[in-house]
Nucleic acid binder design. Structure first.
Lengths: 334, 334
DNA sequence: TTGTAGGCGTTATCAT
DNA sequence: ATGATAACGCCTACAA
């Protein structure tokens, strides 16, 4: 049975109000030092723990935040595998907020779930992990006027969202490859679970320029499918001399094709991957990487949400940079 | 302002008790059908949402479960990246429980955090993600007598824990390789974040037998480090003809070494990886895999915990099988 | 068939 | 310097 303020009050021989005051360091008049000591001693000794539910009920705030993701049955999304979740968790902890996880069946349900959870007092606000989204979703979301931050490429101007700056890092990648002397730059892109899909495609097209043949653009899933396609490209007389690849599986497939075609990174080919994961641990030395810091995305989203709960207006879309790094023999990570 | 039962009662002209009864379908006597309709209509129309906090306070159960993980600052653990979390989330949802995420600074704090959370009414029980653990931790945990399930290799007999059956799948892997004609079977193991480390090592030693030289055992982190070591092994006249590798980065490194040494999977070499992730998407066709179903681990842990909350005794250690599969050109996944 | 009252553990507003 | 008391929204005896 949990210890309550009332029980402490009875033991110490004082009113329950004072117990509440002392324990939470409230000042109204000065509590006699001796009383305060007796109360604190009793509380500690009896193992008092404030009841968070009672506090929440009384104060009308739960100090809980929900992280809302979607599990779309029709496709095999990797659910809850993003490092942004860890970033969110760490950022919330600093302010003493708790983190709830919720999974909606489809994107349409997300708004409903969010409002229901806030409406029933379970949480004070939400972070919505949008793998994809429609203008209608953004519109609905902005209309509920609840504290919410979107993680993902949300174009809505008044909705607060956090994501990486796709145009910036894709342009940087292509320009960098051009600077290395390449002018036939391919794109390998995974259509299935890539949040950034359309934006990546558009920016690659623009950055490589009108003159580049769009035949070096392919949508494939998984290492082996990618390998086959890239192998064919490399067999062409005027095939690409550099490739941008949007996730780790695609990057691995491209690397495999290069090896089997006898190409060498940094000599007659350059490979640029985009990775939010463990890129140092798995890729070929010499590979260039646009490093997505998902942890930073998560913690930024959490911090913006907390600010909104404090009454500050949301900043709208926030876009983070993705630095360009190169895999070397010496950079190791888990 | 949220709608309450009392407000509905006032509008309908009935007592708040009846509203509560009707809304939750309780039966005590029969409510006049007309009253019931008026109440339900009003509730719907006014947008009533039961206040979960008030319910929890009254019923003394929060219907929340905490998933407790550790973020050890001294090492770079990949935090919250396991698919078991998704399994937990999905299983809890079926029973209407909510999922809280909490990260402790170190393993010692975990027990404290758990008891504090349960003590303050925030959650009814916990799932503890043990990347590693000491006998002392298990002992403490079993003594608090709270509903808790461990995910990980917890040897404590009365504590309920869920994990894969390491001895079973490692033995299976080695026996399978032997069946393919190998008798010089190496082990590549990552010391840093591998939950199963010691057990994997022991079982590999036992399964390969006394006669096998223990020099073909190495602890390395990351693809490139692994590649160097395995390359050296392959250069030896009597090097291994098969390797078991405990995570994806190690498997990729081994595969790279094989290619650079001109070895071919299934002809003069066999590679057996252990993977809880996206193995189909990233590995070389021909690679054998012990497939860890982390989703199953998570949902099993959640189901056991829910059963314990129902008053059933915990089953103690639960160990799940990890089937042997082979990567082919045709198995694709995201 | 329905209503009243008490209490879950807090915090906040009075009063003394 | 400290105590009563009234909410917060809900559930459950018990009473009518």
């Amino acid at each position: 049975m949990a210890v309550t303020q009332a029980e402490i009050a009875k033991v110490v021989g004082v009113s329950q109000t004072i117990v509440s005051d002392v324990i939470h360091g409230r000042v109204r008049g000065r509590v006699r030092p001796e009383t305060r000591q007796r109360i604190l001693a009793a509380a500690r000794q009896m193992g008092y723990r404030p009841n968070a539910l009672a506090q929440a009920l009384r104060l009308r705030q739960s100090r809980q935040i929900v992280y809302l993701s979607v599990h779309d049955e029709s496709r095999e999304f990797p659910i809850l595998r993003e490092a942004d979740l860890a970033g969110v968790a760490k950022a919330l902890r600093i302010d003493g907020y708790r983190l709830l996880i919720e999974i909606a069946n489809d994107a349409e349900r997300e708004v409903t779930v969010l409002t229901e959870m806030i409406g029933s007092g379970i949480c004070d606000g939400g972070i919505l992990r949008a793998y994809r989204g429609s203008d209608q979703l953004w519109e609905e979301l902005s209309e509920i006027r609840e504290p919410v931050v979107v993680i993902g490429q949300c174009p809505h101007p008044t909705l607060t969202s956090v994501a990486h700056d796709v145009p910036a890092f894709m342009t940087q990648a292509v320009e960098h490859l051009k600077g290395l002397g390449h002018d036939r730059i391919g794109l390998v892109i995974d259509p299935v679970y890539d949040v950034y899909h359309r934006l990546l495609l558009e920016t690659w097209r623009k950055a490589t320029g009108e003159g580049d043949p769009a035949r070096w653009q392919v949508e494939r899933t998984g290492r082996n499918e990618v390998m086959r396609v890239v192998k064919d490209w490399l067999a062409e007389p005027d095939g690409p001399t550099a490739i941008v690849s949007v996730n780790d599986a695609c990057t691995l497939g491209t690397a495999a094709a290069l090896r089997s075609a006898g190409r060498t990174l940094g000599r007659d080919f350059d490979l640029h991957g985009i990775s939010g994961g463990d890129y140092n641990g798995i890729h070929e030395p010499g590979t260039w990487i646009s490093a997505l810091d998902m942890d930073a995305v998560g913690s930024r989203a959490a911090r913006e949400l907390l600010a909104m709960l404090d009454g500050k207006p949301g900043p709208g879309p926030v876009r983070l940079p993705a630095p360009l790094v190169q895999i070397t023999y010496d950079t190791l990570s888990t």
